[in-house]
Amino acid sequence: MKTRLLVTLIAAIAGMSFAHADVTVISFGGAAQAGQKKAYYDPFSAESGIKVIPGEYNGEMARITAMVQAGNVTWDVVEVESPELVRGCEEGLFEKLDYSKIGNKADFVPEAVTDCGIGTFVWSTALAYNADTLKEAPTSWADFWNVEKFPGKRGLRKGAKYTLEFALLADGVAPKDIYKVLETPEGVARAFAKLDQIKPHIVWWEAGAQPPQLLASGDLVMSSVYNGRIAAARKEGRNLEIVWNGSIYDFDYWAIPKGSPNLADAYKYIEFASRPAPQAQFSAEVPYGPTNNAAVGTMDPAVAATLPTSPANLVGAFATDTEFWVEYGEDLEQRFNAWASR
């Protein structure tokens, strides 16, 4: 009872700014949300007359857990990443989706269709470098580890996810075997041993906006990046390049927190945002791949070529194993924290 009261309080404070919303849509902010506003929020409001109240979060499930437990849900639609979607769905934090209100399941990429969330775009974590500071282009994660040939600081995301995969790729593990190797204690030790080799050369970043900035300022020679951020930096005239070989792609989903007060409007929003034309427009704003199969056909080929889902960019790329990270994530992140803080 005490904790319930506490949780209610926290949720009430968290939700205060979104009271009296028509449909509250929460996503990760940055360039992607700017694109969502142009492609989804504004046209949806114009078509349906339902106002979209945008909000931002950093993917912390604690916020959603607190709201649902307290029975005071103020978010209607929320963008979530795949491991959080799987966990949240199992823990009953999200509504089970009624696809009759969204569209034909067959119209979407198979991975996009799940019980609690519908994929909205495909994004990728890839290697990027500053083409002004590097004379020769790196082509793989093995080059990322080669500090003699490419001297200078390297950026990686502070966390076990992606970092361990990249280490194993650099150590010569084939993409299809990565998660099999990581499941064994020897594989984990191997990944950390590989990371030990370049530990003094690594600068750890946390927010997606950091690496393009650090690359552009010359603080880093190369870094792992979210591909959308690099496109935004290129628009500003930075000469940053992406190496798609060894990139890891994943889906972001729309989900509805359980107990959303505007369920019907939330479905209307998701239905709109899953149509081909708005998705194509979104991809033109931010180069994340669409999940509606019909969207690519309506797209400018020049735009399509910059997406993680274009056939040329998929060579050497692979999908993150959500099940693996749900299962081993907590343990590996703890292990990573211990390693990184030494």
Partner: peptide, 16 residues
């Protein structure tokens, strides 16, 4: 949600 609670708790004792 109970099954997720059980699974999460046991996974902390032993990943997998």
């Amino acid at each position: 949600p109970a099954i997720a609670d059980i699974a999460k708790r046991l996974n902390r004792e032993q990943p997998g």
